[in-house]
């Protein structure tokens, strides 16, 4: 079998902020009743993190959970174990009205870090990116110029961006243009 390759295969850009392909990331879309105790336990077992509050992400040492909608979560797990995790989830959620699917290869993931990161995102997303409004641990699904994307902010001040793999090149170029060294606005 051929080796798995992430969407932009390790591409990097450095300007107002650093844009880099995050490499292979295991991702599972889980739909179901987020209030169910069975589902909460299954999520905890799979990722080591609790089901987050609306609009937030909860991270653990080996993974995390992002709140996508009132009935959908995005589970982050190491790429190597994603298939095994999906099997475990299906087993743990037997009898529940729930569905877990491996979407790792259907997504592109980027890391955006540096002082200009907030500004780079503010230029392309209709989101208030000020430090008071968007805090570490928050997760937001939104529009990034012409495509759908989602991102969260970790405790180190780096943004992690998830988009569809089919538009990963577009998103990478978009972030690079937005982070052009001579395009500083200086609002944040």
């Amino acid at each position: 079998m051929s080796d798995p390759v992430s969407a932009m295969n390790g591409a990097k850009f450095s300007g107002l902020a650093q844009v880099e392909d995050s490499g292979l990331q295991g991702m599972i879309t889980l739909r179901g009743d987020l209030a169910s105790d069975t589902l909460k336990a299954a999520v905890k077992a799979a990722t080591g993190a609790d089901v987050p509050a609306s609009g937030h992400v909860s991270l653990s040492a080996e993974g995390g959970v992002a709140w996508m909608s009132p009935d959908e979560l995005l589970l982050l797990v190491p790429y190597e174990v994603v298939d095994a995790k999906v099997v475990d989830l299906a087993e743990a959620l037997k009898g529940e009205h729930a569905l877990a699917v491996n979407v790792s290869d259907a997504r592109g993931v980027f890391r955006l870090s540096g002082d200009g990161a907030r500004e780079v995102l503010a230029k392309i997303c209709p989101v208030d990116m000020s430090a008071e409004a968007f805090k570490p641990g928050q997760f937001r699904r939104t529009r990034m110029a012409q495509v759908a994307a989602a991102f969260w902010l970790d405790d180190d001040g780096a943004f992690h961006i998830v988009c569809f793999r089919s538009v990963a090149a577009y998103v990478f170029n978009l972030l690079s243009v937005s982070a052009h060294p001579q395009s500083k606005v200086g609002v944040y």
Partner: peptide
């Protein structure tokens, strides 16, 4: 009303 986000028109 579902996710509490103040969404701007282009997101809708």
């Amino acid at each position: 009303p579902y996710c509490g986000v103040k969404a701007e028109e282009t997101e809708l």
